[in-house]
């Protein structure tokens, strides 16, 4: 029992961050599963976090309500952004969503209501570990089931070949928008949970580095099933602690090890870590 308490004291916050990052990994996974390369999910994470945080801190809103509002606000932002930018493909979509991310970060940096560069402070600490993992379990279950629905197959069709998907009846605009919005809803939920974990959120936490991290979670873990990004996010979040255990404390060497893992995965496991757990990608099940 003592060992458990001690473990919790040391690693409790790591488990929280792991859960949040897994949720963020899933948020990009949805968008990815429809072949959309988005770097905007960090911004949706920020929109969810700031919306929920402002509601509880400045307006005394109850936490569940703030969480729902943050989630929906991120989804709404994705809907409005998606209408113009989802016409773009590949790298161009990545650039447009990246620009959106910068707009959101700079807005958070300069607005009064977000607390500017100092960040939003005095956020009530409400989020519990079980809440994060409940949200994560719900999201994972939802996505695992979504995979075999009409919409899930439409996502895969678009990812594989957009022209062929349209010719067999997939409404490209609608389907892509849904993938984008569902991803943003999950990111917004993660943001609301994160904001109430820490007293404080700052604009830098939702910037380019985070956007790229989400991408790396997916690439390292794999994008062919919901558990891929979970593997990636869990491993890469825990890595600094593991390295600390091995006696590596300095900053740059950790980034080096991160990069090395990414490189090794791309070279030897192009389908991500999840390829280690299955014989063939995406087996046909009923």
């Amino acid at each position: 029992m003592d060992a458990l308490i001690q473990f919790w004291a040391v690693y409790g916050s790591l488990l929280n961050f792991m859960g949040i990052n897994c949720l963020l990994g899933l948020s990009l996974y949805v968008t990815f599963s429809a072949g959309l390369l988005s770097l905007g999910n960090a911004a949706f994470y920020g929109i969810g976090g700031y919306t929920a945080g402002i509601l509880t801190t400045h307006f005394g809103a109850p936490f569940p309500l703030a969480l729902v509002a943050g989630t929906l606000m991120a989804g709404l932002a994705a809907l409005l952004l998606g209408l113009p930018v989802l016409r773009l493909k590949g790298v161009f979509l990545a650039m447009a969503t990246l620009a959106f991310g910068e707009v959101v970060r700079i807005a958070a940096l300069n607005l009064k209501v977000t607390g500017g560069a100092e960040g939003l402070i005095n956020i009530p600490v409400i989020t519990q570990t079980w809440m994060i993992y409940l949200a994560l379990a719900g999201a994972a279950y939802f996505l695992a089931r979504l995979h075999r629905t009409r919409l899930g197959w439409a996502f895969q069709s678009i990812r594989e070949d957009e022209t062929a998907a349209a010719a067999m009846g997939v409404n490209l605009t609608l389907t892509k928008t849904l993938a984008f919005v569902i991803g943003a809803l999950l990111a917004g939920l993660a943001g609301g949970l994160y904001a109430h974990l820490n007293f404080l959120i700052t604009p830098g936490e939702f910037g380019f580095a985070t956007a790229v991290n989400l991408l790396i979670f997916n690439i390292v873990g794999g994008t062919r099933a919901w558990y891929g990004p979970l593997l990636g996010a869990a491993l890469l979040t825990a890595l600094p602690e593991v390295l600390r255990g091995l006696g590596v404390t300095a900053g740059p060497i950790r980034l080096f090890v991160n990069g090395l893992i990414l490189l090794l995965v791309i070279l030897f496991l192009p389908k991500g870590l999840m390829a280690l757990f299955q014989r063939r990608p995406a087996p046909a099940k009923g």
Binding site: Q156, S157, E160, T163, A164, R224, A282, A284
Partner: peptide, 8 residues
Amino acid sequence: IRLFAGLS
């Protein structure tokens, strides 16, 4: 040919 190459 435009198949979904990554699917069975």
